[in-house]
Simulated scan of single mutants.
Amino acid sequence: MRATDAVGRYGEDVAAAFLVGEGWTVLDRNWRGTRGELDLVGLDGSELVVVEVKTRRSTAFGHPAEAVTARKLARVRRLTAEWLRTHDVRPASVRVDVVAVLLTGRGPAQVEHLVGVV
């Protein structure tokens, strides 16, 4: 596994633990659709939430959330529709969130949860 893949996987682990700590139920991790992958799919109450996780070791190239572009969000929306077609889940509503994880090497990971980005 490449170092960047390991950082990303660790960030997803941190994000999932954070969301479970907020009372969420994680339904899927790293779900592969026909044109990409959803990092996390979960339930926040009766709302289905698809979470794009971005992890960085520093802010030298910007805040992790800045890597979530309009193009990436459009892909996430398409994949969310595919996920819903292939799973027997009928949520009250659906939203897309971003969880930004910053690993500075000093202290615990910094987690920022951006709710309803689209």
Rank of each mutant, 00 (worst) to 15 (best):
A60V: 10
L27A: 11
R90N: 13
A100Y: 01
N30R: 14
V51R: 01
L102Y: 03
G62K: 09
T80Y: 05
L48D: 05
G62N: 11
G33A: 11
T80D: 06
R32P: 02
V99G: 01
E22C: 14
S58K: 02
D39W: 02
R106E: 15
R35F: 11
A70S: 14
L73N: 07
E37H: 09
R71M: 03
E47Q: 15
N30L: 03
R95I: 01
D97Y: 04
D39L: 11
V26N: 08
V96S: 12
V68H: 06
R75Y: 00
V101R: 05
R90P: 00
T80I: 05
P64R: 01
V101N: 05
A60L: 12
V51F: 01
V98E: 08
A100V: 03
G42E: 02
V26T: 13
V51D: 01
L38Y: 01
R85F: 01
K54V: 08
S46L: 13
T86N: 14
T55W: 06
A100M: 04
V49C: 10
L38M: 09
L103S: 03
L102S: 10
R29A: 14
K54R: 15
G42I: 01
L27E: 12
R85A: 15
E47V: 13
A65W: 03
G36D: 11
G21R: 04
L48T: 04
L43G: 08
A100C: 05
A65V: 04
R77Q: 13
H63T: 03
R57I: 06
T104C: 09
T55A: 15
S58Q: 04
P91A: 10
L79Y: 04
A70G: 13
P64D: 09
K72T: 11
T34L: 12
E47H: 06
G33F: 06
V89K: 08
L73Y: 01
D88C: 08
R77M: 10
S58D: 13
R35N: 14
W24G: 02
R32W: 10
T69P: 12
R95P: 10
E66G: 14
V89R: 15
E37P: 12
E82S: 10
R77I: 00
L38G: 05
V50K: 06
R32I: 12
R78M: 09
R71W: 02
A100G: 09
G45C: 04
V49G: 02
V94S: 09
D39A: 12
L43P: 06
R75N: 13
V94A: 07
E37G: 09
A74Q: 12
L73I: 10
A81F: 00
A65G: 07
A100R: 02
W24S: 02
T80R: 10
L102F: 07
V76H: 05
A67K: 13
T69G: 13
R35Q: 13
W83N: 08
S93F: 00
L38K: 06
V68I: 10
V94R: 05
E66T: 12
K54G: 06
D28P: 00
T69R: 08
G45R: 07
N30P: 05
G33V: 08
V99F: 00
G23A: 08
